[in-house]
Design a protein around this nucleic acid. Structure first.
Lengths: 251, 251
DNA sequence: GCAGATCATTCGACATCATCGAAGATTGTT
DNA sequence: AACAATCTTCGATGATGTCGAATGATCTGC
C-alpha cells in the first residue's frame, strides 16, 4: 500500500463528511498541515477537490461526479436491473433499488446503483449513490447473508436497527433459508423493504430490493414472488450459475 | 504536486475510458507494471477501483459513486437550480440542465450537475454527471464567455461543432453581448439548446440551460426571456452581485 | 495433454521523492 | 493597530516509492 496515495484517499474520505479547512483535515488525519497541503493541491489539479475562493476551505470537486457517472454507465449489473426494474415496480407498486457492496477495511456498507421510482406518479428523489450500513437495510442483509461474515460495529440508525451481532446472525440465517431479506424501519423511519441477492459468474454481485412506506408493510406474498423471480432472472442474465448464489463465507 | 498521488489520479483518468489490464495501464501511463500495481492496489483497498475476479482486469469501483453523490448533495448551485428548474421547464417545454466547469490542465469541459426532464411525460435518461467539451455546448460557451479564455484543441463532436478558434471567439463575443449562448447540434445530433451563466459571490459559478430536440429549434423569444430571468434569480440566490457576471478573463 | 505466452504479483536495492517544522504572506478579528 | 488564524512556501532529512527481474498462475494454441 502506497502511503501517499492512501493518505490522498483518506483526504477524500474526510471531505465526504463536509467542507473543511486545511488545518482541520490535518488534525483529523494526524498529519502535518503542509503534508496535507501537498496532497490536496494535487487533488485540486485533477478536479477531485476544489478550494472555495472566499474561505479557503476545501470541498469535493466535479471530477468526482464524472468518475461516479462513468462507474454507473459501465456497471453491467445496473444495466441488467434497469431492464427488469420497471416491470417489478409496476407489479408490486413499490420503488425498486439495486445495490452493490462497498467493503472497506472497517466498514461494511452498500451503495445504491439503480433506482426505479414507485409507479404512483409522485415526485421522488433519485437515490442512486447513497450509502447505507449493510446491517441496517434489506439490501445489505441480502449481501451479508451470502457474502463475507459481518464484522465491525453495528451503528444504530433508528430505534429498530439491529445492533446485536447475535440477532443479526439469526436474521441472516433466515435470509439464507428463504433467499429474501426484510427490513422494517431499521435504516430510515417510515421505510420498509425486501431484498434478494444477485449472482453473477463469480458469485455474489449485488442485491435488488423493494422499498415501501411503512403504511404498505408488510408486503403481500405476490411481491415476494415477483422479487424472487426478478432476482433469478437478472442473475441468469449476469451469468450466475445458481440462485441464490453459493455462500462465500470467508473473510 | 505529489508524484504518486498524481499518478493515482492518472490511473483513475485512464480507467474512465474503459476497464483495462494492469499492463495496458502501465503502457498508457508509461510506467513500470509493478509501479502501477502498487497504486491500483491502494485504490482497490479504498473501493475506488475493483478488480474483476475472472479476468484480473481493473475498473472503477463503487466508492467513486459515493464521492460523486456527496459532491452533488453539497453543491449549493444544484440546490438553488432545483428550486427554479421545474417552473422553467414548464414555461418553456424544454429539459433544463445546469453545469459547472471542469477545468483541468489541458481540457476545458463542463459537467452536468442538475437535470430537469422535459415536461412531456416521456421517459428520459437523467444526464447528471455527463461531461461535454466546453466549446461544443451552450452551457460550456456560457462559461467560456465569462470565464478564462479557451485554450487547447477544439475536438469535433458533430459536423457542426465549432473547431475554429476564431469562430469560437466570435461566438463568445455574441454571448457576452446578450448573456445567452446557443448551440445547434454541435455536441449531439438532434439536440439544440440555450444557456446562460450563473454568478455567485466570487464570480462565475456555473451555467443553466435549455435543451430541445432539433424539431423545436429555434426556441421562441419567450424561452430566452424565461431562461434569462431564471439565471438572474438563481444568481441572486447564490449571492451573485451582478448578472451577467463580470468577465474574469485571466488564465 | 503439453508447451508457450501472457498476465498479475512479489521481492529487494537504489535513489528519488514525500514528509515535516518553521518561516512567510494574507486575511479577518478584537 | 496589533493579534490570531489561516493557507502557502521552502529546505534538509530519511523514509518510501520506484523499478527490473524473478515467480506463479492462467489461458491459448498446437
Amino acid at each position: 500500500m502506497i502511503q501517499s496515495v492512501d493518505r490522498a484517499m483518506r483526504v477524500l474520505a474526510v471531505l465526504r463528511g463536509r467542507r473543511m479547512s486545511l488545518g482541520e483535515m490535518a488534525g483529523r488525519l494526524d498529519l502535518a498541515p503542509s503534508t496535507v497541503h501537498g496532497i490536496v493541491r494535487t487533488l485540486v489539479d485533477h478536479g477531485m477537490v476544489v478550494q472555495e475562493p472566499d474561505s479557503g476551505h476545501y470541498r469535493l470537486g466535479p471530477a468526482t461526479l464524472q468518475l461516479g457517472n462513468v462507474y454507473l454507465d459501465t456497471l453491467e449489473l445496473r444495466a441488467r436491473v434497469a431492464g427488469w426494474a420497471p416491470e417489478l415496480a409496476r407489479r408490486t407498486g413499490c420503488a425498486v433499488r439495486a445495490a452493490v457492496p462497498l467493503l472497506l477495511a472497517d466498514r461494511q456498507e452498500v451503495v445504491v446503483v439503480a433506482h426505479e421510482p414507485r409507479p404512483d406518479g409522485t415526485r421522488q428523489m433519485p437515490e442512486v449513490g447513497i450509502v447505507i450500513p449493510a446491517h441496517a437495510c434489506a439490501l445489505g442483509k441480502a449481501l451479508l447473508a451470502f457474502g463475507p461474515d459481518p464484522s465491525g460495529t453495528l451503528p444504530s440508525m433508528t430505534a429498530d436497527t439491529i445492533t446485536d451481532p447475535a440477532a443479526l446472525a439469526a436474521d441472516l440465517a433466515r435470509v439464507r433459508a428463504t433467499g429474501i431479506a426484510a427490513e422494517a424501519e431499521e435504516a430510515v423511519l417510515g421505510e420498509c423493504g425486501l431484498a434478494a441477492p444477485l449472482a453473477d459468474a463469480t458469485g455474489l454481485a449485488g442485491a435488488i430490493g423493494l422499498v415501501t412506506p411503512v403504511s404498505g408493510w408488510p408486503l403481500p406474498a405476490s411481491a415476494v414472488d415477483a422479487l424472487r423471480d426478478t432476482a433469478r432472472a437478472v442473475s441468469r442474465e449476469l451469468g450466475g450459475a445458481a440462485w441464490p448464489p453459493a455462500e462465500a463465507r470467508s473473510a
